[in-house]
Simulated assay, not measured.
Amino acid sequence: MALVGVEELRAAQRRIAGVAVRTPLLPCPWAQDGRRSLWLKPESLQPTGAFKIRGAYNRLAALSAEERARGVVAQSSGNHAQAVAYAAQLLGIKAVIVMPEASPAVKVANTRAFGAEVLLVTPERREEVPAELAEEHDYVWVPPYDDPYIIAGQGTVGLEIGEDAPDQLDTVLVPISGGGLISGVAAAIKLTTPGVRVIGVEPELAAHAQGSLRAGTRVVWPVADTYRTIADGLRQPSLGVLPFEHVQAYVDDIVTVSEQEIRDAVAVLAQRGRLVAEPSGAVSTAAYLYRAGELGGRVFAAVLSGGNLEPTLLSELLTA
């Protein structure tokens, strides 16, 4: 498959204008230490609380009239689910969303509130059921990351970082799981802001992407293993096929962070940054806080990919 290029990225940027928020790039004086500095891209400010609306709307808005009439089906632990439901509601398209039973209740409730039909399944069935529904009802499948329209939509995050970044920016930190976000961001950064490094961040307990980049082939983790991490949005067992090609072409490195580091980053973002981040969205900040010395950069931008988390979990992380 061809990699997403500047033309596809710019087309996505035009398509999602007025639907996805053009989130700011925020300076973080509380994270400066004289040697390095941090800027945050808070995608938690999107109408669905995460970056996923960019790719979902770009994908659905590009459907033909015949495809829209058929309806769509998607699978997700929460943020893609909400984004597809919201985009479908805006465009008048029926949406059926398959979600793992362990999905946070707030994400399930929000997906239903946007008008989608939600089916809860065991984690092992999350990939099978959507295919069965698409076959039975002729729904259009909307993948969470393995699709050029999804990647291009997510890549608008990278276009905005490149347009807003300080001149000294040298490193962009991006959460990684299935790979749609980092694929789009990395393509946008490398094609429009040359010289800036792109580094993926994932939990130690779901580190398939780091293994894949280093092995030169897609590594697949057992689903049960990935469910050990608190970062529920980063529990995919492997990179997608097309995302892996983008990762190989454009991503400089992938680092991991521990569960405690993720928890601490959520608390720091709330207390010092005044930003609500779900654990999955906080991993990039965790990498800056605990790995920046190893990474060698001086001016970092970190994508805070989402802020959808249970209030009880947020309370727990703030009082730990």
Results as ranks from 00 to 15, higher is better:
L91D: 07
E204S: 10
G179S: 11
G178P: 02
P100R: 05
G180Q: 05
D147L: 05
L205Y: 02
P175W: 05
K94G: 09
L133S: 12
N110E: 10
L133F: 08
I182F: 08
G195H: 10
K107A: 09
L90C: 05
S103D: 11
Q154N: 15
I151V: 15
Y149R: 15
A188R: 02
A95P: 03
S103T: 13
A188L: 14
V96D: 02
D146W: 10
I150G: 00
E101D: 12
A186R: 00
P203E: 14
R126H: 05
S103P: 06
L120F: 08
V98P: 04
A209C: 11
A88I: 05
D147A: 02
E124L: 13
A105L: 14
G195F: 10
P203V: 12
I150T: 08
F114W: 15
E163K: 03
I151Q: 01
R125N: 14
L159R: 00
L205A: 14
T111N: 03
A209W: 00
V142K: 07
A113Q: 13
G92P: 03
I189K: 02
I93H: 09
I97H: 00
M99K: 08
V98Y: 04
V108T: 13
R197C: 12
K94R: 15
E101R: 14
L169V: 13
L120N: 07
L169C: 06
P123M: 10
M99H: 06
E163L: 13
D167Y: 01
E127Y: 04
V198P: 01
V108W: 03
L181K: 08
P203D: 07
L90M: 11
V201P: 01
R197N: 13
D167R: 15
N110W: 02
A116D: 12
L91W: 04
M99T: 10
A165W: 02
E101F: 08
L119K: 14
D146V: 11
P144S: 13
T111W: 07
A95Y: 08
G92W: 11
Y149M: 07
A95F: 03
A207E: 14
E160L: 00
E132F: 14
K190F: 10
V96Y: 02
Y149Q: 06
A165D: 11
E127W: 11
P166D: 14
A207Q: 04
E204C: 05
H137S: 01
P130S: 06
L169P: 02
V157C: 12
I93G: 04
V201W: 04
T122E: 15
R112K: 15
